[in-house]
Design a protein around this nucleic acid. Structure first.
Lengths: 242, 242
DNA sequence: TATCATTGTGACAATTTGACACAAAGTAAA
DNA sequence: TTTACTTTGTGTCAAATTGTCACAATGATA
C-alpha cells in the first residue's frame, strides 16, 4: 500500500492492453505447520481477505500465468501447482470492491474499468514448503498471511467455495499419489509425513499401515536417521524426484 | 452449409458484442452403442473434425453456456454434463482455419476478427442416450456424426488431447459413481450396464462382482424382467433419480 | 421333452486393510 | 550404571474386500 493512488490507476489501466480480458487465475496455496493445513490469503480491506491471483498475458500459457502469479506472491520457484476447476458464475466481478477502493483513495469514479468486469477464474492449488516461502502483498492489499483452513476469515466473492473445492481436489489427488511431501522440508521423517496426511484428511491413519503404503509407492528414499531426540531416532526420507 | 457467405460473416461479427471474448466452451459428448464408446464430432472441412462448442454470453453462467451448446447440438435437455479441465495453451486459435474458410467462401481477407483470436477453452464432458439424440451441424460445419473413441479422425487444434482427457476424467468419475447409466435407455439390464462399464474401462469385469457392486450403490431399482429372449429373462433396472 | 444360451447368485480363495502388539533405540532420571 | 520413559519401526493376525469360478434358473427352440 505504498503506491500512490495515481500510480495504481495507471497500473490498472495499462493492464487492459497486457492481459486477456475477463479471465483470471486464482491460486489456493497450501502450507503446513505442526498439524495445521493453511492457505495463503491477501487482505483487501479491513478483515476481508481474498485468494492470490492474477491475469493471463495475451501470449502466455494459462499454466505459466498461474505459476508466475504464485511465484510473485511467495518468491519461490518449483512449486507443485495443479489446475482443478474453473469458476464461471455470471456474477463473479469486483465491480463494487474496485469502486470502494477508488472512493477510498479519492480517485475519480469509474464505470466499466476492465478490472471491474465479470471474470471467469481458472483455479489452481499449490503445495509449498511454508518455511521457504516469503509471502508478500500486492498493490491492492495490505497483508499476505497464512490462515488455517479450519478457521477462514471473511472472503471475497466465491473464494471460500474455491478453497473448499481446492481442498477436496487435494484430498482426492492424495489418494493416488503422496503429494503431501511437497508441504514438508526436503528431508522429513515418516511420522512427519504421517502427521501431514492425517491433517489433510482430518482423520486418524494407522501408522504401520501408512508406512507400508508409502513404501509401496517406491518414491521415497531412506536417508540417515535424525538424532537429538530422547528416544529412537526416526529415519529421514526424501522424495526421489525433488 | 445452407447459409450465404455474407450472412455467416454477419453472424460472426455480431458475436463480438454478444460473447465474452477469448473464452470458449468445448464439449466431449459421449454416446454408446453395442460395446462402442463414441463421441460426437463436427466436420469443419474435408476429413477434418472438431469438438462441438461455443461461446459464453456476457451475462451467462459458464455451466449454462455449456448446457446451451450441447442442447443446440443434439436437441436434448437434461443431459449429464461435467466440467473437467480448462485448456489454455497460448497457441490455441483458429487463425488459419477461419482464414481458409473465408478464402473458400470468397469473403474478404480478415485479420483480427474476434473469432480468430487466441481462445481459452473450458472443457466439459456429457453423457447422453444416443438413441434420443438428434445431432445437427452448425453454420461452419457440414456434418455432425458419432465417432468411435477407438478410431478418431483428424481433429483440429488440441481437440484430440481434450477427448483423451475427457475419457480419463469419465473413467475416474466412474470409479466413484455408476454414471454409465446415463448412456443407456431409461430402462436397462445389468448385462447392458456391465457391457457399458467394460467398454468404458476397456477391460473385463467379473459379472457377479459387478452386479454386487452396483447393488451396493443402492441407486438402481429392479423392475420387471424383459422377455422375448430364448433364455433366462434379464431384469430391467432404472436409476432412482432419473 | 431335451437342448441351448444367457442370467442371477452363491461359495470359497486370494488379497488388501485394520487393529494391535512389541522390540528397538535413545535420553534422562534414579 | 542402570532403569524408566517415549517414540519409532515393523510384525502378526483378524476382518473386510475382491477375484474366480461354479451352478442353478429360465424360457425359446429343436
Amino acid at each position: 500500500m505504498e503506491k500512490k493512488p495515481k500510480e495504481i490507476l495507471k497500473i490498472i489501466q495499462s493492464g487492459e492492453h497486457l492481459f486477456i480480458p475477463h479471465i483470471s487465475v486464482d491460486s489456493v496455496i497450501f502450507g503446513y505447520e505442526t498439524n495445521e493445513l493453511q492457505v495463503l490469503l491477501l487482505e483487501v480491506s479491513d478483515k476481508v481477505w481474498m485468494l492470490p491471483g492474477g491475469y493471463v498475458l495475451k501470449e502466455e500459457d494459462l499454466d505459466t500465468a498461474a505459476h508466475r502469479n504464485v511465484i510473485e506472491r511467495i518468491g519461490l520457484e518449483n512449486i507443485f501447482l495443479k489446475q482443478f476447476h474453473t469458476f464461471g458464475q455470471s456474477d463473479r466481478s469486483f465491480k463494487n470492491e474496485i469502486a470502494q477502493l477508488f472512493s477510498h483513495l479519492s480517485l475519480p469514479e469509474t464505470e466499466g474499468l476492465w478490472i471491474q468486469e465479470r471474470f471467469i477464474s481458472v483455479a489452481y492449488y499449490a503445495l509449498v514448503n511454508k518455511a521457504l516461502a516469503h509471502p508478500k502483498p500486492n498493490f491492492f492489499t495490505q497483508r499476505c498471511q497464512w490462515h488455517s483452513v479450519q478457521q477462514l476469515p471473511k472472503l471475497l466473492l466465491d473464494h471460500e467455495r474455491i478453497i473448499t473445492a481446492a481442498l477436496a481436489a487435494f484430498q482426492s489427488d492424495l489418494a493416488a499419489y503422496p503429494l503431501a511431501y511437497h508441504l514438508l522440508p526436503k528431508k522429513f521423517t515418516m511420522p512427519e509425513l504421517h502427521g501431514a496426511f492425517q491433517t489433510i484428511h482430518q482423520k486418524q491413519l494407522d501408522r504401520s499401515r501408512f508406512q507400508k503404503k508409502m513404501f509401496e509407492y517406491d518414491v521415497f528414499e531412506r536417508l540417515e536417521p535424525r538424532g537429538g531426540v530422547a528416544h529412537r531416532r526416526p529415519y529421514l526420507y526424501r522424495h526421489r524426484e525433488s
